[in-house]
């Protein structure tokens, strides 16, 4: 009974999450040792600008591959490559925009 209630709660959190980023990104990454901010910094190290980072993320979500991943070989070997994200383009765009806004460096330095 308790297990059923917990599953219902988890499901309702997933379905009624506030935004696309929280719905589609946060639940899966919660399990990984490298947080989303660490991954964002890896994207910045490789792609630098907003448009290029967003484009790279969009591409990777649709066509995940070891060769284009920004994560280390050790990480890939341990956790593997993610599955293709099956969400609409609009939902993906919204999630990436929110991800950028959350972790971008612009306006955060002093």
């Amino acid at each position: 009974m308790v297990k059923k209630l917990f599953m219902l709660l988890a499901l309702s959190i997933g379905v009624f999450a506030e935004n696309a980023y929280e719905r589609n990104c946060v639940p899966c990454h919660r399990e990984l040792p490298t947080d989303l901010q660490g991954m964002f910094k890896n994207y910045l190290l490789v792609y630098s600008g907003e448009e290029t980072v967003k484009a790279a993320l969009r591409h990777y979500m649709r066509y995940p591959s070891k060769h284009i991943s920004v994560m280390s070989d050790l990480f890939i070997d341990t956790y593997g490559i993610k599955e293709t994200l099956q969400i609409s383009d609009q939902e993906l765009k919204e999630a990436i925009d929110l991800y950028w806004e959350k972790y971008k460096v612009f306006g955060k330095l002093n």
Binding site: Y47, S48, G49, E50, E51, T52, V105, F106, L109
Partner: peptide, 9 residues
Amino acid sequence: YDIEYKEIF
């Protein structure tokens, strides 16, 4: 500046 010439700081 980033790759798109936007000022970061």
